[in-house]
């Protein structure tokens, strides 16, 4: 399964001068960002820097109080809800699996934007669900109840649901929280293989080393603003880490992938 490559290889999702926040405080203000098409963009930053807020604003989960989020050149608010859902899929941070639902039924929910009151289920839906299960590596779990699965399996099932939407753009909000390292790698390997097949993938992560390993485009945030952006090799320096995280460190090269590894300096206390 691969995404259709769009004619415009320029960024499909952009934010222009956006301010996003909750009831009484703005978490992100006056921010501009363009998500490069076909890359695996990883957004990192310390706690409460606004990375999840930004992602959710880009995915129209949160309204913008100022500025505009654009999808394919038009403000995202101008599209009907189902149209957005056909172009942009998202794995939310804490999705709730309804009681007792089995994997294939949950994944089938992802077909909603392609269905209607009259066209409630078609063979295309069958194909899409089968493809999504296969792609996410959960095809053999199809008839199992979701609440019986392990953390890593469950995440992949939710990703399968997003895949069933058949969107060329995928957002993953902290998909590796609460997962042990083997499952974290599992999920990020899937993200990478999707990107290699032409999807535009955006992931919010808080593990730096994994972020450096997988990102083809890195966005570093601090206190609601973007501090650095670009390829990992260009952007990541010990000074940057210290500035953003307040952590004096050294960088060594990962022997497996050649990407940077953060090594905190030993404390002299």
């Amino acid at each position: 399964m691969s995404a259709t490559v769009s004619e415009q290889s320029g960024p499909r999702v952009r934010a222009r001068d956006v301010t996003i926040g909750y009831a009484d405080r703005a978490v992100v203000s006056g921010l501009d960002v363009a998500i490069p098409t076909g890359e695996l963009t990883v957004i990192i930053g310390p706690n409460a820097c606004g990375k999840s807020t930004l992602l959710r604003g880009l995915a129209r989960m949160l309204p913008t109080r100022a500025g505009v989020v654009e999808l394919d050149g038009a403000p995202i608010g101008s599209y009907p809800a189902k149209e957005i859902a056909r172009r942009l899929g998202m794995l939310p941070q804490s999705p709730i699996a309804p009681d007792g639902i089995v994997v294939e039924d949950l994944v089938a929910r992802g077909r909603y934007p392609h269905q209607g009151l009259l066209r409630q289920w078609t063979p295309q839906d069958d194909d899409a669900v089968a493809g999504a299960l296969e792609r996410a590596g959960v095809a053999d779990l199809a008839t199992r109840p979701v609440d019986e699965l392990s953390g890593g399996q469950r995440q992949r099932v939710w990703i399968a649901m997003a895949l069933a939407q058949q969107t060329p753009i995928l957002f993953l909000d902290e998909p590796t929280t609460y997962l042990d390292i083997a499952h974290q790698v599992e999920v990020l390997d899937l993200a990478r293989s999707l990107q290699r097949d032409g999807f535009t993938v955006v992931v919010v992560l808080h593990e730096l080393n994994l972020a450096f390993r997988y990102a083809t485009h890195l966005v570093v945030m601090k206190a609601g603003a973007i501090v650095a952006e670009g390829a990992v090799a260009d952007v990541v320096t010990p000074e940057l880490i210290e500035e953003v995280y307040g952590l004096p460190c050294r960088l060594v090269t990962d022997p497996e992938t050649g990407t940077p590894l953060v090594v905190p300096k030993a404390s002299t206390r």
Binding site: L91, P92, Q93, R109, P113, Q165
Partner: peptide
């Protein structure tokens, strides 16, 4: 499935 997942689809 939660508001966000629902908005997502």
């Amino acid at each position: 499935m939660g508001d966000e997942a629902a908005i997502g689809i």
